[in-house]
Amino acid sequence: MSKKVLMKGNEAIAEASIRAGLAGYFGYPITPQNEFTSYMSYHMPAKGRAFVQAESEVAAINMVYGAAATGCRVMTSSSSPGIALMQEAISYMCGAEVPAVIVNIMRGGPGLGNIGPSQGDYNQATRGGGNGDYKMIVYAPSTVQEAVDLTYNAFDVADKYKIPVFILGDGALGQMAEPVLLPEEKPEMKGDQGWGLSGAKGRDPRAVMSLRLAEGELRKHNWDLVSKFEKITEAETKYELTDTDYDVLIAAFGTSARVAKTAIRQLKEQGIKAALFRPITICPFPYAALAEAAKKAKKVLVAEMNTGQMLFDVKVAVEGAVPVEFMGCPGGESFSPEEITAKIKEMQG
């Protein structure tokens, strides 16, 4: 008998976060992530931990910033328009170097858009939606199990590098139920980690801030952030390549990648050799691995539920070595495996 439990993506990610030792959750309702906030509203207080339904996403992320500045393990979750509102504080957090986990269950945009699953926030997540020079670690899970595993680990990664970490899912991942194996429960992480604000008793006062006024100080700080991200790129970049022998390489992330996997199976039945290259960290993007994988293909197809955002990173990686084609499905909808299959057949001419 399997020890797996059947859970919706939103609830499974929330539970994984609690098991990672979460001390505080701050959020605001928005579809399609509502089960996340509801789950937290019950389970966090039941464990005597902090839960606040904030008055806005702006307030929620600033509560996260304040709580994260103490060194405690904290998070928020939202969906695209709400994440847009959070960008100011995320920029501050990156500048001030505080760890936190932020979950974006993406929906269709721009604007209010719709509530369907979308991948339209790729650029926002990987380029930094706030002001200034900064990058975050962005995981793009493809299944509920992977979302659970990546989120559980994301808190450690966030603490290790003192950086906000994004979990970029979409409405399909949040709403879908799959059987998952939940990780072991860790105790609540409430310490100051040696740098957090905990009261200046028997030590010098600590300041958590992004303001750097002295001449040359901000310049140096920005380059330090770049060096930190180089270390992150080296140690934390993750991807999946499904095969070693292929003519067509499909590059896709998250839900699109799942759909591509079904298409690849259909193509195999028809004698067409295709493989999937799936960035698991879309930031840092696995440029080198993709460049290597693309060399073995005759063509690369980028499939995304947007109008072509990761496409840019794929082109940068492939550097013109083979033709790169694109199929997109924006507007809160997903393409079918059959559509990908048809596109690849068309590419093969």
Binding site: A50, A60, V64, G66, G199, P205, A207
Partner: peptide, 23 residues
């Protein structure tokens, strides 16, 4: 001579909320 966190413009009460709720 105390610990200090610097808030985005206007958000200090939200940061204070976060700090006080976890600590």
């Amino acid at each position: 001579r105390t610990d200090i966190v610097e808030a985005p413009h206007g958000r200090a009460p939200a940061l204070a909320t976060g700090i006080k709720r976890v600590r």
